[in-house]
């Protein structure tokens, strides 16, 4: 297995994963989506809401706000917590939202009881309050996985594609394929030789193959190399997300190993 980084940002990582089966690449992808635990607002009590939005709408909006913690390892999911899911500081992070109009309530107004926990974005508008309108909400956030609800899904857009390979044999340099390529993968250099500029951009549409009268181009996906593209919702850095996804996979494999050992 070989990993080569293509792009790394806080919210997105693209890397080339080669020498693995499609099943493994897909396991990483699915793990990013459904297995990595993150914090999200779970239950709220609305003491006062005289805004134009219904209680349910505000609850939904609060749930979708990504929440960031300095260290997620400090917390545990309610099912695995020592308290047995009753609710303790280890599995619940309390918060308060109090606001009075006129003005907009933003995600930064969610005040958590722990300073290490905060909303990943400061300026998500939650509700607009008019003159004299009030909002008093109390509740808690929990650590869970995307399997349970999309609000606990740390990886939003996770996907992969096979690495394309473009072979050029017998090209006469007419340049028609360069014009037809929607992603600008192919270029002609000064001596009219066809070159591949950025192979990772190729979407395997094969328009260049159809356009070429010389039949000089062949585009094929490589079966064991994948361009993974993982995007996070902001609650976990994309880099950490992939690492945690791999750790979750490893945990599952160990459980399988132990179970198989106990049977035999």
């Amino acid at each position: 297995m070989n990993v080569e980084l293509i792009e790394l940002r806080d919210d997105r990582v693209r890397f080339l994963l080669s020498g693995v089966t499609p099943a493994f690449a897909n396991a990483i992808r699915r793990s990013c989506i459904a297995e990595v635990p993150k914090l999200a607002i779970d239950e709220i009590s609305i003491y006062e809401n005289t805004s134009v939005l219904f209680d349910e709408q505000i609850a939904l909006r609060l749930g979708l706000v990504p929440i960031r913690a300095d260290d997620l390892k400090v917390y545990s999911t309610p099912d695995e917590c020592q308290c047995g899911g009753v609710g303790c500081p280890g599995c619940r992070i309390d918060f308060m939202v109090t606001a009075e109009g006129p003005g907009t309530v933003y995600s930064r107004d969610i005040k958590f009881s722990e300073p290490a926990v905060r909303a990943a974005f400061d300026n998500i508008p939650l509700v607009v309050l008019g003159e004299g309108e009030k909002l008093v909400i109390e509740g808690f956030a929990t650590l869970r996985t995307g399997k349970e609800h999309a609000k606990w899904q740390a990886g939003t857009l996770c996907g992969y594609k096979n690495l394309p390979s473009i072979e050029i044999i017998g090209c006469n340099g007419c340049g028609r394929c360069v014009k037809v390529c929607p992603r600008g993968v192919l270029v002609l250099d000064e001596s009219d030789t066809l070159k591949v500029k950025d192979i990772t951009e190729c979407s395997l549409c094969r328009l260049c193959v159809e356009e070429c009268e010389q039949r000089a181009i062949s585009v094929m996906p490589l079966e064991d190399a994948f361009i993974m593209s993982i995007e996070s919702d902001g609650s976990i850095n994309a880099k950490d997300l992939v690492r945690m996804a791999a750790e979750e996979l490893k945990k599952k494999a160990l459980v399988l190993q132990d179970t198989l050992a106990s049977i035999s």
Binding site: L53, L64, A120, N123, P125, L126, T156, L157, E231, D233
Partner: peptide, 18 residues
């Protein structure tokens, strides 16, 4: 109110709305 996230992909879009 602007939806907090994109309906299709889940990216937080409301943070840039204003």
């Amino acid at each position: 109110m602007i939806p907090v996230r994109c309906f299709s992909c889940g990216k937080v879009i409301s943070s840039v709305w204003e």
